[in-house]
């Protein structure tokens, strides 16, 4: 084998090996670290991991936000208009966190309450994350609700249309 070919072979092998290893590590890391998003209906149906970290997306239910006086703890309810999950969060909430706003929280379930470590609200008040919108649409489908009967909830809509049932 002449030197140029040999050098090319070595370089090619190194590149292939590097890319292969990088891909393997990347895919492994992806599978280790990615978190899934579930709607309250899916959580109630037992689809979410019982004791793992996942994301819960929904709308902050009307009249459910309760700040525990003197502490950083906030209790609220996330709903997809079919099921509700009580959420407990300790920390400072984002500016756009408010009733009727779609929100994604990260955390885990504990005795029927979702203990959130992160709360994400969007910076565009009229915007609903496609994931939440889909989760809500999917929940609707599963409950076989005719689409005319219950319009898909809009972020920021009035608070009296769909009074949410708050679990104790």
């Amino acid at each position: 084998m002449n030197p140029v070919r040999k050098r090319r072979l070595i370089v090619t092998l190194v590149i292939v090996a590097a890319v292969g290893i990088a891909t393997a590590i990347s895919v492994f890391a992806l599978q280790q670290t990615m978190t899934y998003l579930y709607s309250p209906s899916e959580v109630i149906a037992g689809k979410a991991p019982a004791d793992g970290v996942f994301r819960l997306g929904g709308i902050v239910a009307e009249g459910s936000v309760h700040k525990v006086s003197g502490t950083l703890q906030t209790d609220f309810v996330l709903t997809d208009r079919f099921e509700n999950i009580p959420v407990k969060y300790t920390g400072i909430l984002p500016d756009l966190f408010r009733v009727g706003q779609s929100t994604i929280t990260t955390g885990r379930m504990q005795n029927g309450t979702f203990i959130a470590t992160k709360v994400l609200a969007k910076h565009d008040a009229t915007y609903m994350p496609p994931q939440v919108a889909q989760a809500i649409a999917k929940a609707k489908e599963e409950h076989r609700i005719p689409s005319g009967k219950l319009p898909p909830p809009q972020a920021g809509e009035g608070s009296t249309k769909h009074p949410a049932v708050i679990r104790p």
Binding site: I25, A29, Q32, M34, T35, Y36, L37, Q131, A135
Partner: peptide, 18 residues
């Protein structure tokens, strides 16, 4: 999402160490 695996989020635990 397109393959219907589920709604996934990939965050700093993936990007940072890699």
């Amino acid at each position: 999402e397109a393959l219907n695996i589920g709604r996934i989020s990939v965050g700093p635990p993936y990007f940072g160490p890699l």
